[in-house]
């Protein structure tokens, strides 16, 4: 049980770290897809199957496609995707210092925390139960999330679309 968790963690954290360190943007995006799949495997391990499939659909399916499209649309030339010039050393070092100190603080807090004992068996949450809770108790939140998604996607289309009424000297 714990061995499976450690395996999933190594896959997830390793691909995430590699994605953040690679120079090539396309490699980074594909490694992040592996990391998101690792998160979905963690959800499966924890017994949250429905969330795992939602994670695969949304992240490995939709967000990764949008990211790849953005990478390809913003590529300057055929060579430009290779070496994006390395960030400066001070910037990398300070970012590493911030992340490492935050990891030390949260890690020590977690290591010394005491939680109430967990129940022995995994909580059973069937899809039917999730659906009933979503529609009954959290119905208002579900509607609001639908509105947020609609507004955000329309807004994204408007922001990214080519406006025709620009100045003629701006035109490419």
């Amino acid at each position: 049980m714990t061995a499976a968790l450690l395996l999933i963690a190594v896959l997830m954290l390793g691909s995430a770290a590699a994605a953040m360190l690679r120079r090539n943007l396309i490699h980074s995006a594909l490694l992040l897809v592996a990391s998101w799949t690792g998160v979905a495997a963690f959800y499966l391990w924890a017994g949250a199957e429905f969330v795992a499939f939602a994670q695969i659909l949304v992240y490995a399916g939709a967000v990764s496609m949008v990211v790849l499209f953005a990478v390809l649309l913003t590529r300057q030339s055929r060579e430009a995707d290779l070496p994006i010039e390395p960030a400066t050393v001070t910037r990398t070092a300070s970012a590493f210092a911030v992340a490492a100190s935050l990891a030390a603080v949260i890690g020590s807090a977690v290591a010394t925390a005491r939680f109430p004992a967990a129940s022995a068996e995994a909580p059973a949450a069937s899809v039917k139960q999730i659906g009933l809770e979503l529609m009954a108790e959290h119905g208002a939140a579900l509607l609001i999330v639908g509105i947020v998604l609609t507004v955000a996607l329309i807004g994204a289309t408007v922001i990214a679309s080519n406006d025709k009424k620009r100045d003629p000297e701006d035109a490419p």
Binding site: A9, L13, A17, M20, A95, F96, A99, I106
Partner: peptide, 8 residues
């Protein structure tokens, strides 16, 4: 760890 990788 995942959060700190993302922050970095």
């Amino acid at each position: 760890a995942l959060f700190c990788i993302g922050l970095f």
